[in-house]
Structures are given as C-alpha cells and as structure tokens.
Measured scan of single mutants.
Amino acid sequence: CHSECLGNCSQPDDPTKCVACRNFYLDGRCVETCPPPYYHFQDWRCVNFSFCQDLHHKCKNSRRQGCHQYVIHNNKCIPECPSGYTMNSSNLLCTPCLGPCPKVCHLLEGEKTIDSVTSAQELRGCTVINGSLIINIRGGNNLAAELEANLGLIEEISGYLKIRRSYALVSLSFFRKLRLIRGETLEIGNYSFYALDNQNLRQLWDWSKHNLTITQGKLFFHYNPKLCLSEIHKMEEVSGTKGRQERNDIALKTNGDQASCENELLKFSYIRTSFDKILLRWEPYWPPDFRDLLGFMLFYKEAPYQNVTEFDGQDACGSNSWTVVDIDPPLRSNDPKSQNHPGWLMRGLKPWTQYAIFVKTLVTFSDERRTYGAKSDIIYVQTDATNPSVPLDPISVSNSSSQIILKWKPPSDPNGNITHYLVFWERQAEDSELFELDYCLKGLKLPSRTWSPPFESEDSQKHNQSEYEDSAGECCSCPKTDSQILKELEESSFRKTFEDYLHNVVFVPRKT
C-alpha cells in the first residue's frame, strides 16, 4: 500500500485506493498535508475557505447554543480562536489581540433580562453583547459592586439597553466600559436606550469621564423622579442622539420631579488639616426662599486615587461607600458681607490618608415646582503625618564578641513616609551569675543571650482551647457569634421535631 494509506488498500502504491488515510483526505486521495488554498479540518480532512465560511455563517444565523462559528488559524479551520487571539470578521482569520481579548457573548432569543446578581454573573467577562440587555433589578445585597464585577467589562451592545423598574439602582456607572450601543435591534418605538419607572436612579454616568455613542435609535425617559433633566440632556449631547427624540420621548413632568437638581456650584473657602482632623468651610448658599434650606450634607471617604465619582458603590438597598454628615444651616444675616460661612470639623480620621470630599445642599421643593440647590466639586484632601507606631517583631542576635545583629519589621501604621529608623542602645553591667558559677561542674549549661522565638506554653494553649472559665478566673470563653447562636437554635429545633416524629412513629394507638 501507499505510504499515506492506513489499515489496508485495494490497489498497491495508489493513494486513492486506501481504506483510511494516515494524515489527511483531499478529493478522494490521501495526502501528507493540505496544500494551499485548503485548510486542515478536524485533523483528517482538507477543506477550502468557502466550506469553513459556510459553517461560520450557519452557526451565526441559527443562534443555536453550542454550535461553533468556525475560524481560520495556522492553516486550520477550527471552532474558535485560541487564547490571546480574536477573529477578523472580513476573512475569519485569528489575529493577536492588542491588550485583553474581546469576548463576544451571543444571547438566546436576542435579549437577556438581568433581574438578579445570579443572572448578571452569566455575563461575567463579556466585552461584546450580541443582542439586547434588559435591566430589571428590584433589590439585593452589595448590588453596585456585584454588577460592576460582572457587567463592568461590557464595551458594546449590538441591540438596545433597557432599564425598567430597577428600584435598587442609583447610577449606571457599573457599566464602566460601555462605549457603544449599535441599535441594530430596537425596542418598540425605535428606541435604543429605554429608561422607565426607576424610582431611585439619580445618575446615568459621570459624563466628564465617560463617552457613549448610540449609532441608531432614540432615547426614552419616563417616570424617573430623581433623575434630573440636565442629566438626560447631557446624554443626548454626548451620545449623538440630540435631535432624534420626539416631543413625548422625554417626559418633562415625570423626570426629576422629586430630585434636588443642583444648578449652582458650592466653593470651599477654608481648608485646614491635622493628622486626624480636617476643618472645612464653604461659601454660604440661600435659595430664593431661605426657609427652603434644610441644611447641608457632607460626604467623605478614603480615596487612594483621584478618580472618585459621587455615586460609586451606591445602591438604593443601603450600600453606600460614603460617610454622610448632616449639618444645620448657619444663622442668616441681613448683611451679605457678614454672612457666616458654614463648615464642619471632621474628626477621627487616619493620618497621612487622602480623602475625597464634597458637600451639597438639602432643600425642600418650592411652590413653583422649581428645584434649587448647590453642590461642590469633589475635592481631595490629605491629612498630615504623625509619629508612626512601633516597629514590629524586633530580633537581636550576637554573632561574635563585638557585634549584635538587630532586625525588625516595619510598623503596622507608618502614618507617613518613613525615611529612617533611630536605634538606641545602652551598655549593661555583666551578670554576677557568670562569676559565681563553678565551671568545672559536669552538665553545666552556660547562660545564653542568643534570641529564641517566643512560644506559647501548654497552660496558655489549654486556656485558649477551654470553653469555660478556669477556677483562677484568668480566662473566659469568647462570646458566641450570631451565626453560632442561630445554628444552635436550628439544631435544637431539629432535635425537638425529630423526637416528636419518633414518638408518633414508635407509639401507635392500640386498636379498641
């Protein structure tokens, strides 16, 4: 048989008469490798580009789960590009990614509803959504962080984005990388972005840091009482949809009607710091009717980097990364020049730590249904340095008659930039024990000054392991946590139920 035959053949030295091919099969003959313009397919066939392209389009058009959109890589027609490569849609070739590779997620039936953290986790790592997304989240724990972890990498949506009755959302900033909504599939009414009845939605994105392009379709905003109209108009300008909307697409009466839409800028007039305090004062603000001013709200939190936005980490279910302080308005003076500047002394802060701070007014709604208010920009203030805590785990070892090696770990709280350490030492008198000992005694162990690591005695271990207080009263049991108490109650309830079950099964009433 021919060298490319495997198993047997019907005619000697003829690659077209093989029972099976050793390498690849091409047009009725066995070959060692697939010549151009053919590609290896499933490690035994040679196919042309049209064959591989037909497989790709067949799966793409069917949208069946589990099928493969075949691509070409290293002269092979394979189910998908290997790690580190992405497909070129024009020629199906796998090309190296520039940075992290995109991950295209194809949605069944063309859309997916995100109504819980669990459903959001199914899209973790996706960068391109081939379909439409509907966000409908009523509640949950730590929602802002969970949504950002699972949806934060999405850069492109081919269909539309719909935010509907998501009472738990305060902001859409968890879509931190969303840059493009194509609108290839539109919501009824030709809408590519749809926001309806979101009672706590206050911000779409921080438009000073976020760009969003909507290729096709219109915007729809109705019944978002805490979303200011200025935020919607800003989205029109940034996304390129200005002029597409009709009169009733953006409701003037049901958007922002319960919001404090600040239209003035508060400026800080005085800032002073110490290692654990920050004193702030800002310019006074009074609405047209000074009785509408209820006070100020001061927001602050630790910020290692200057990239904080107002609604980071917030949701309507209680999660809030900001510390909020309510401040009463100052006494009002008739003389504008003698107006008191409101302020606040922030206490209990960490030394040498940068804080993000902003302040906003708290006002009631005027009778004319106009909203007044003022808010400052987010500023960054760093507390002063102070003395560091003591170095940890000092170790001293003498390696000769004239040297001592000293080692330690950095302090747990540096409280500033540590530039150097101060080492103090003092000579001590020799131990009298060394002169009084009889060095001729056998088995004498000389006193040693070398360091030995501390260890816990058996008594201390027994005390720590004991669940009861000892007789001397030195140790006591740790208080039980809520989960331990709940577990004990469940076990007790189970024992009672099981005992009742045994009584009912074992003891049967005697027939009379």
Rank of each mutant, 00 (worst) to 15 (best):
G140A: 15
A144S: 15
S132A: 14
G343T: 04
D249E: 15
E156T: 13
E187G: 05
C261M: 03
Y191N: 07
F296A: 11
L212R: 00
Q382I: 02
L212Q: 05
Y160W: 04
A120T: 10
G295A: 09
P284M: 15
I405T: 07
E156M: 13
K209E: 13
K350A: 07
E187M: 11
S260W: 10
N340A: 09
L123A: 12
F193D: 01
Y270V: 01
S239Y: 06
Q258I: 08
C228E: 02
Q121Y: 01
L362A: 12
N198W: 00
H341Y: 05
G217M: 01
E187N: 07
S402P: 03
L107G: 04
S398N: 11
W205H: 13
P394C: 15
D312C: 03
L294M: 15
N200F: 08
A195G: 12
R138D: 04
W286K: 12
F290W: 14
H222E: 14
R332N: 14
L229S: 04
D312Q: 02
E236A: 13
G295D: 15
G313R: 07
G159A: 14
Y194C: 15
I157H: 00
T241Q: 11
D197I: 03
S321V: 14
K301R: 10
V324P: 05
L133S: 00
K267Y: 15
K253Y: 09
H106D: 12
D257K: 11
L161P: 02
T364Q: 01
G313W: 15
T213K: 04
S400Y: 14
R182Q: 03
V324L: 07
F358Y: 03
R247W: 13
D206W: 12
G256S: 07
K267M: 07
Q199G: 06
T273W: 09
S338F: 05
I154Q: 00
F268Q: 00
N224R: 01
E310F: 10
G189P: 08
D367F: 14
G159E: 00
A385E: 15
K350H: 13
T273F: 07
L161F: 04
S400V: 11
F299V: 10
A168K: 01
D377A: 06
F175Y: 03
F275M: 05
R124F: 11
L201E: 15
I250K: 02
I271D: 02
T254E: 11
D328R: 08
K226H: 02
F358W: 02
R347P: 09
I181N: 00
S338Y: 05
S239R: 10
E187K: 08
P342M: 10
I114Y: 05
G131E: 01
E148L: 07
D393A: 14
L178R: 00
W352R: 04
N200D: 03
I157D: 00
S119I: 13
D328F: 09
C317I: 08
F221R: 00
S119N: 08
L107C: 05
K226I: 11
E302T: 13
S166R: 00
R369W: 07
Y355P: 00
S333V: 10
A144F: 15
N200Y: 05
G110R: 07
T118D: 15
T127N: 12
E155F: 15
Y305P: 12
S389V: 03
Q199I: 08
W322A: 09
G348F: 14
D115I: 06
F221S: 07
E264A: 05
Y160A: 01
P342N: 12
D257C: 10
G295F: 13
R179V: 06
S321I: 05
Q382S: 12
T127Q: 06
K350W: 15
L294P: 05
Y270T: 01
G125A: 04
S132N: 05
D292S: 08
L172N: 01
L345D: 12
I357G: 02
R165T: 09
Q339A: 13
K360F: 10
N248M: 09
T213I: 13
M297T: 02
H106F: 02
W205Q: 02
E148R: 13
H341A: 11
R369E: 08
D292G: 09
N334Q: 13
G348S: 12
Q121F: 11
S269W: 03
R370K: 12
V390N: 10
Y160N: 06
S401V: 05
S319A: 11
W344R: 10
H222V: 04
P351Y: 08
P388M: 01
D292E: 15
F299A: 12
N320Y: 15
Q382L: 04
I188P: 04
N307A: 09
D312K: 05
I379S: 05
G125P: 01
D335L: 04
I154M: 12
L294N: 13
D115S: 12
K234T: 11
S333T: 11
K242G: 14
L107V: 09
L153T: 12
A145N: 13
L204R: 00
D328G: 12
K360Y: 01
W322N: 03
T386R: 11
T254L: 11
N320M: 10
R202F: 09
V104K: 03
W282K: 00
E246L: 09
L349W: 00
A195L: 10
W344K: 09
T353K: 11
W286T: 08
D393E: 09
I137L: 15
A144T: 02
A385K: 12
P304E: 14
H210V: 07
Y372P: 13
S171E: 09
P288F: 08
T254F: 08
K337A: 08
Y300A: 09
S398V: 07
P304M: 15
K360I: 03
N224L: 07
I271A: 04
L178M: 09
Y191A: 07
L151V: 14
P394I: 04
K103Y: 04
M297F: 01
N340M: 02
N334E: 03
L180N: 03
Q121P: 06
E236P: 04
I129S: 01
Y305H: 11
K267G: 08
Y194E: 12
R176D: 10
V381T: 14
R272W: 01
L172K: 00
F174N: 01
P391L: 09
Q382T: 10
G313L: 03
L153K: 06
P342E: 13
R370L: 05
F175H: 01
K112A: 11
N130G: 04
E231L: 08
R176I: 14
M297C: 14
G131D: 01
L362E: 03
Y194A: 06
F220W: 04
I214H: 02
Y223R: 09
G243T: 08
L186A: 05
